[in-house]
Simulated assay, not measured.
Amino acid sequence: MGRMVRSCVQSILKLVNSVIGMVGLAMVLYAVWLIRVWQRQMDEFPFGDSDYPPPWFIYTFLGLGITLCVITCSGHIAADTINGCCLYLYMFFVFLLLMLEAAVTADVFLNRDWEEDFPEDPSGSFDQFKDFFRSNFHICKLIGLSIVTVQGLAFLLAMILKALGPHQYYDSDDDYPPERAPLLQNAVQPPPYLAEDHVYGSKPDAWNIRINDKTNR
């Protein structure tokens, strides 16, 4: 029963972790597209782009996407191995991500001048993102809550999997791994070496009979 529950939790954790990976991959693709658009805009200027600061919003978006992909890989490894260190490391990454999201959300909702906390983005992608978020506030809010819920569920499943622990095959002396038990049960014991003594045991008796016949003659 415990093995079935453990396998079920592993499967659910992998599924939830895949959703986080899909979000990270989407962020990476979007950031790559923004970088390509930014490069095209900079090529249109006759003079170099040395006077323009780097587009921090694009690179931040790209870094967050790569971070989510790395967290997804660590989560799949932790779910497969059920290793304590891997599970703790995965929970630590998810916890830091949740704290970062909570800090940004609190700053946006509690600070009226939150836009001044961020530097100016020369690419204009940050302004486009704000306009899209404001025009589609309810949809973006639902997507954000869904992502946070998935991350919290992944953290909870990792804690449950750590509490269940790895597979236990050697609970007693009579329990063996399923792939090794038939070999041990059907093992053939070698024949005793006493059979060889039985084969050669008749020779001394025959030798004694011959000596007795000679003496009688």
Rank of each mutant, 00 (worst) to 15 (best):
C140Y: 12
L156I: 08
S172N: 08
D173W: 13
S11N: 10
Q128P: 00
H76K: 08
P192C: 09
N17V: 04
D131V: 03
V94R: 03
G75P: 04
A206V: 14
Q41E: 15
H198E: 15
V199K: 11
L68R: 04
G152W: 06
M4S: 14
P182Y: 03
K203D: 11
N83C: 02
L89V: 10
F57V: 02
W56T: 02
V32K: 05
L100S: 08
G63M: 03
F129Q: 03
L183I: 06
A26G: 07
F45C: 12
L13G: 02
S74G: 11
P178N: 14
M1R: 09
Q168E: 09
D49C: 08
L87S: 07
V28Y: 02
K14H: 04
A195S: 14
G24K: 03
E120G: 04
G21W: 09
P178M: 15
S50M: 04
Y90L: 10
M22Q: 04
A181D: 08
L34M: 12
L13N: 05
T67H: 11
S74P: 05
E115T: 11
F92K: 01
T60Q: 06
V9Y: 13
V16K: 01
F132E: 09
S50I: 05
P191M: 13
A78F: 02
P182K: 06
D121C: 07
L97W: 00
F61D: 04
L156A: 14
S50E: 11
E196P: 02
D171N: 14
N17I: 03
